[in-house]
Amino acid sequence: MTLLLEAVCKSYGGHAVVQDLSYALEPGTVVALVGHNGAGKTTQIKMMLGLTRPDSGRIEVLGGDPRRPETRRHLGYLPESVQFHPGFTGRETLAFHARLKGLPEAQDALLDRVGLIEAAGRAVRGYSKGMRQRLGLAQALLGAPRLLLLDEPTSGLDPALRRELYGLVADLAAQGTTVLMSSHALTELDGHAERVIVLNRGRKIADGTLAELRRLAGLPARLTARVGGVLRRIAVNEAEKAPTLRALLAEGAEGITLEDPSLDDIYAHFLRREAA
């Protein structure tokens, strides 16, 4: 078990941010924490880093207490919209973080891996948001971590860089790294996260693979087709899909589109259910 939360509660000034939260992550999995801003994602990550103590409950990271520095040796962390001292170059910044992790200073291979080798000699002051994020990712990957915590890693990234990031994440997971990333957009996680934990006001409201969440939500797919020049919109559930399609084809339907509920629909459904 790379990460274990057991009945964790945390409140700030009487306001509960994380409530009775329990989950466990297996090695080599990519898991997404999904929730609105203020759902308690960042607070959870802070507790996993030992920066904040839970009010009650237990957190175990890589088999140890996250508040002990030694536990964090094999942990990589990318903060939300990561910042660095503007006066140092990318190479100097990465060297500093490498030394803090007890690694050699020369990390050009890593800079190359995140596509920053050409800008490595320039001061961070002149970096774009995407370049800062690349540097942040490079520092998170230092020393081949066994657990990677990525807080909103794709916010503000262009699609190309986003795809690159998910590629890196998949590579790492294949090598046995557990990746936990927070996000407020469920849609972009499709195909990238094996498991999704949906949070609302610090509570876990759904947990499973995307396919499981789809089934749990039980939202109908939307089928549109043109039959004899008339556009028909039909809502079909999983079991009705095949018979309905067959019937439509028999009627000579054209321009058939079948749209599964988007992840955002599913997310909205879980939030509505929670509110009810």
């Binding site: 880093l49 536990t71 973080h97 803090l100």
Partner: peptide
């Protein structure tokens, strides 16, 4: 304020250090 404190403290080092 610069936003670098959390990252610094996420490394394997203690706060007294």
């Amino acid at each position: 304020e610069r936003g670098t404190l959390l990252l610094l403290l996420s490394h394997p080092l203690s706060r007294p250090q």
